[in-house]
Design a protein around this nucleic acid. Structure first.
Length: 830
DNA sequence: CTAGGGTTAG
């Protein structure tokens, strides 16, 4: 025994009477241990003759068992006070007591250093402590010291160090431990081997894990389930199920661990039948299914079935914990069954279960989807009360919720306040601004993100490209495209799909085709985007060709494919083809027509002048026709001069949206064209009365990297004199070529001369004139307009395109018009 | 006296 002990005993007594000196480096461990116990409560276990190492060890063991660490420290004090010491056996238990106490890992270390002797148990115990306290370097050093000091490396040492390196996320290091264990001849033992399997599982070395498994002399249940789990966790689902069967053949009965892994494998294979049979087996064997198995079952049923199937399992669960509740809320949110998700959240709270970060993130997702700002705010305050706003998933969900609900200020505030930002944080904020229509902020966030060295992902590029798509200029889009090439994201399917969309919406259909043609693999969205791109540009035949190629490649067209295809047929006047595809969609593909499909068909039939058929189709719609459908019919009525039906459809639109300025204007025009001046005037007076104003017509055009915009009658441009001159030249030239102004588009009650003057200050004409002056001759002119192009401007641009011999591309609110040599791609219908 | 398998959901 050590001589120093009595001195320490004295020191201890002094320390108790003089607590201020406790931090002095001279203080030993026992002193510091005593300090943790309030002075008044300090008492010593009385020294009795039978208080030997054995009873001391037993008493300490009891303290650990009961988690009564205060009593344990008192015992420690008594040992020190008695002075005669205890054996290594008791020291190790004392060490374990400090390790188990967790927060006292410093004391464990001090005790370890002051112990009279140490054996492998002492080392293993302290390594455990280091693992708990995440003192990884110290733990590794202890292991190598254990080795160097010549202690025997037993199975405990190996299993402990293996778990240790797994917990420090360095499972690759199991190579070294494996070699060491092999030398010591421990690899055939189930304990060490299973720990090795687990370590190799974590770093994905499934084959090596299997080799270890095969080398086990006597495989127990834990080894079998360890290997099954290893397969299931690494996506080798078939192997997992196979091994699960072999385990049964070896005479071992499944347990909750093997059930859980086998079910995970079934979910991975989307094999609901095998999954159900395992579920049935567990039920038949009357197995007390635990939380882990239950969650695996929920996973299985949502993976290969529906949330409703999972709900049945959920309702049967005897004890629902926060994880299973959160799971259900998450799946309802993901299936966009938001009301049910929110309902479950309320039920969960009524059941007095405490929500955690998973619960909040999921329910906030639902609030975002259905734009429930009030509920979102309430949940936000709950989050704050729980202190969970620091969780990155929760703060991201809050950012998303506020931005999806249109409260971009609060969204930004959460974003700015979040201490830890990841790629999702930035993407959420970028998407928020794109949806809000603020492309410039979206771009600047994107550049900030790159400055902060956060890796842009496919989501980042897709959403930034979405912002580019609604920009007036092609330039940002091509810049982002080159960035994707640099980062190899141009090989990513989702990014390519966004590139197609961007090029199409920016008027560069050739760019869209190029991206599509270069793609090595395409998904359904790629084909849909390309069909949509052609539709947007009025290239119906090309859209049809792409659709046929899609079908030939074996991909199944979906709802959206047909929306794009039908709109392409409509935009290009392919009336019979459109009708055929609509019928085929229902008959051959079993797709129930949705509102968008009906809208295309009404537009298509209307365009061909079959207004009665269009009206008949509307009456056949099994639900309430949407405002879009009535707008489509109204558009057709205007073109075919059907006054009565036009009035009916305009009134329907205005019932649903009384503030719709363009419909008021169309209605007034219809009356005017039927020479019902009184009605026409009434509509215009009514517009004034209810405060509806025709939105200002704006046109954008880019020249040398700058975007210029023009409003109606705009005279603010610095080159206005040149523009006026150019307009005058154009006017004279096209008049000679046969252009006659169509003054019916001017609603004001003025003379025809004045009407013609008003026509010539339309924003698209100003932009066109400026484009002819400012862009190199022969290059295409791209103009963007916020409203539909007016009938007369459409005529003018047709003439101009022929006279100047240039391609003119106008994107209005609905589609593109490609003017070339006096013809427009829309075939004069839009 | 010390050690091995699932910590799931967003």
């Amino acid at each position: 025994m050590i001589k120093a002990l009595p001195r320490r005993g004295l020191q201890l007594r002094r320390a108790i009477s003089q607590p201020r000196n406790l931090r002095s480096p001279k203080c030993g461990l026992a002193t510091q241990a005593a300090r943790l116990i309030p002075e008044t409560e300090t008492h010593f276990i009385p020294f009795t003759p039978d208080f030997d190492s054995h009873s001391c060890a037993a008493a300490l063991q009891q303290c650990i068992h009961r988690l009564d660490f205060r009593k344990g420290r008192n015992l420690h004090c008594s040992i020190v006070k008695r002075g005669s010491g205890v054996d290594l056996f008791a020291w190790n238990i004392l060490l374990n007591m400090y390790v188990q106490a967790g927060e006292l890992s410093d004391y464990a270390r001090l005790l370890f250093d002051e112990m009279p002797q140490r054996n492998v148990v002492s080392f293993v115990t302290l390594i455990q402590g280091c693992m708990k306290a995440e003192r990884f370097d110290e733990g590794l050093e202890l292991f190598s010291r254990l080795h160097k000091e010549g202690h025997e490396l037993n199975t405990f040492a190996f299993t402990t160090i293996l778990k240790f390196i797994v917990s420090m996320d360095c499972a690759e290091m199991s190579w070294c431990v494996h070699a060491c264990a092999y030398k010591a001849g421990h690899c055939g033992g189930a304990f060490v081997a299973t720990a090795l399997i687990d370590a190799y599982c974590r770093c994905g070395l499934v084959d090596i894990a299997r080799e270890v498994f095969d080398g086990i002399g006597c495989k127990d249940m834990v080894a079998w389930t360890g290997m099954v789990t290893c397969y299931a966790e690494n996506g080798c689902f078939e192997e997992a199920l196979q091994l699960n069967v072999e385990m049964g053949r070896a005479g071992l009965k499944p347990n909750n661990f093997s059930f859980s892994s086998a079910l995970k494998a079934c979910a991975g294979l989307d094999d609901i039948d095998v999954g159900k049979s395992i579920h049935g087996y567990a039920l038949k064997a009357n197995y007390q299914v635990n939380q882990f198995v239950s969650v695996s079952l929920l996973e299985l049923y949502t993976h290969s079935g529906s949330v409703d199937d999972a709900l049945l399992v959920f309702q049967d669960m005897p004890e629902k914990d926060v994880i299973s509740w959160s799971f259900m809320i998450a799946r309802y949110s993901q299936s966009e069954r938001c009301d049910e998700a929110i309902g479950m959240f309320c039920q969960m709270r009524r059941a007095l279960l405490v929500s955690n970060q998973f619960t909040f993130a999921s329910v906030l997702q639902s609030c975002a989807t259905i734009q429930e700002l009030d509920l979102g705010r309430q949940i936000h305050s709950l989050v704050l009360r729980f202190g969970l706003d620091v969780d990155i998933f929760v703060s991201n969900a809050l950012t998303d919720m506020y931005s999806k609900c249109g409260d971009i200020e609060n969204s930004m505030q959460i974003f700015n306040a979040s201490l830890h930002k990841n790629d999702v944080t930035w993407n959420t904020m970028i998407v928020g601004h794109v949806q809000f229509g603020d492309q410039l902020t979206a771009f600047s966030l994107f550049s900030d993100m790159i400055k902060e060295q956060v890796q842009a992902t496919q989501v980042t590029y897709s959403s930034v490209l979405c912002a580019c798509a609604s920009s007036a200029s092609l330039k940002p889009g091509t810049q982002v495209h080159s960035l994707t090439i640099k980062t190899v994201y141009d090989k990513n399917v989702a990014v390519c799909n966004s590139l197609i969309d961007m090029y199409a919406k920016c008027g560069n259909i050739k760019g869209a085709c190029l991206v599509f043609d270069k793609m090595k693999c395409r998904d359904g969205v790629s084909w849909n985007s390309m069909i949509q791109a052609y539709s947007l540009h009025g290239l119906g035949a090309a859209a049809v060709r792409i659709f046929e190629r899609m079908v030939d490649s074996g991909l199944k067209p979906d709802k959206l494919t047909f929306v794009s295809l039908l709109s392409a047929c409509c935009n290009s006047g392919l009336i019979d083809k459109g009708q055929d595809y609509f019928d085929s969609m229902v008959k051959d593909y079993g797709i129930d027509p949705c509102m968008e499909h009906y809208t295309c068909m009404v537009s298509l039939l209307g365009r061909s002048g079959r207004l009665d058929k269009a009206m008949k189709l509307i009456q056949e719609i099994p639900y309430e026709p949407s405002i879009m459908i009535w707008r489509a019919l109204l558009g057709a009525c205007v073109i075919h001069n059907d006054v009565e039906l036009g009035i009916v459809s305009a009134k329907r639109v205005l019932e649903m949206d009384p503030q719709d300025d363009s419909t008021h204007v169309l209605l007034s025009n219809i009356f005017a064209s039927a020479r019902r001046w009184d009605n026409s005037a009434f509509v215009r007076r009514n517009m004034k009365k209810i405060g509806v104003k025709k939105g200002p017509g704006l046109s954008w055009i880019e020249s040398q990297g700058t975007v210029y915009y023009f409003s109606v009658g705009d005279a603010s441009h610095q080159d206005m004199r040149l523009i006026r001159g150019m307009l005058e030249v154009l006017r004279n030239k096209i008049k000679r070529a046969g252009y006659a102004p169509n003054c019916s588009v001017i609603m004001h009650d003025v003379e025809d001369d004045e009407k013609e003057r008003l026509l010539w200050v339309h924003s698209e004409r100003l932009a066109l004139a400026f484009g002819l002056i400012a862009t190199p001759s022969g290059s295409p002119i791209r103009i963007l307009k916020n409203l539909r192009i007016c009938l007369d401007c459409h005529e003018v641009v047709k003439f101009v395109s022929k006279i100047v011999g240039r391609e003119i591309i106008v994107r209005d609110v609905n589609r593109f018009h490609h003017f070339e040599n006096g013809i427009c791609s829309c075939g004069d219908y839009w």
